Simulated assay, not measured.
Amino acid sequence: MLLTSYLLAGLAVLLAWPIPVALSRARWTARSPFAAMVLWQAIALAGGLSMIGALLFWGLEPLGSTLLDAADGSIKLLRGDAGAKTPGPIHIFALSTAALLGFHLVLTLIRAAWRITRQRARHRHILKLLTEESSANPGTLVLDHEIPIAYCLPSFTGSVTVLSRGLVQQLNADELRAVLAHERAHLEQRHDLLLLAFTSWNDALPWLPTSKLSLAAVQELVEMLADDVALREVTAPVLLRALLTVATGALGDPSGQDSSSLPSAGTGGAPTEELSSHRLRRLLTPKPALPRATQTLAISAAVLLIALPTTMLIAPELFS
């Protein structure tokens, strides 16, 4: 089990720094945001399993050479068997750290979900006072304000898309269809749940390079995925014009009009509408999608990343 602990620790180090840094700098991700998203999820999940597993196996090492032996040794220790081995202070510290880390990750996720749920409930209440239902687009609320705004408010009981009157007036029919398709993609693909997971990961381990890089990457990738859905209905120039109009509203009204009365779209864990340089370049100079074989290879690598620490945890004797 000691060798397995070392292997898991080495994998955790790789997933905490060099691998996420390399992926964050990769240029192919814009050509296949879905494969990149799967890889980021695998890195985060495998990294967490590796960190906890390395500490767990280090702590259990005195109790047995396998998980079954360690479980049997733990039972004997709890029963007060005179022949049972007793872990030393370092091993007890490792076991305690593994338990605390796992509890911390789960608690942070629950706390983030609770906070975001309350924020969205308050936001929805404000929208009821300031918006009206769109007669042309079901599930869309229109905010009576001149600043161009578009965002979505995810929910399990009735997600909505919010558009400002100023945006509707500035966009033509194709551009409006592009914005609605983009926001609908966020809601249908539940990008908010992906962002919730990575936001809580960043909240739990803000000092870890993986958490910062993964959150920034996922925020951009969900926008690219929504762009791809919109591009099935409109051309890239139409989508770009619509996104630029929305982006000007996110930056603020250049005319100096007061926007303090606008409800904040920052509901945590929800997609943003930031038009990054990568998204802008992707729409200005479109490149072909990655070959199917390359995408399959990337997804296979993600599966392998998750399978490796999982196998080590379930059957560590295979690596000993």
Rank of each mutant, 00 (worst) to 15 (best):
V234F: 08
V38G: 01
A307W: 05
L60F: 09
L171N: 07
G166C: 13
A181V: 10
V160A: 07
L2G: 05
P87G: 12
V142L: 12
S255G: 11
S135L: 06
L107H: 13
E233H: 07
R281K: 15
S50W: 01
S211C: 06
T29W: 03
T97I: 10
R292P: 04
R241K: 01
L105C: 04
R190F: 02
P62A: 07
L7I: 05
T235V: 05
A121D: 15
L39Q: 02
L213C: 05
L193R: 15
L101C: 09
A26W: 11
Q41G: 15
F34P: 01
G83I: 08
A298T: 04
V229N: 06
P209A: 11
T267Y: 07
A54M: 02
I126R: 15
P154Y: 00
L240N: 00
G249Q: 04
S264M: 10
D203V: 02
L7W: 01
A216L: 12
E274F: 14
W40M: 06
M1G: 14
L240V: 06
K128C: 07
F103C: 15
T86W: 04
M37A: 14
W58G: 00
V179A: 02
G158W: 11
D258W: 04
W201C: 03
D227V: 10
F57I: 09
G47S: 06
L239V: 01
S260H: 09
I52P: 10
L176I: 03
P18T: 08
L3V: 11
E133T: 15
P291K: 02
L2H: 05
Y6C: 04
M312G: 09
E188P: 00
L275F: 12
T131K: 05
V222C: 01
A181M: 14
L308P: 00
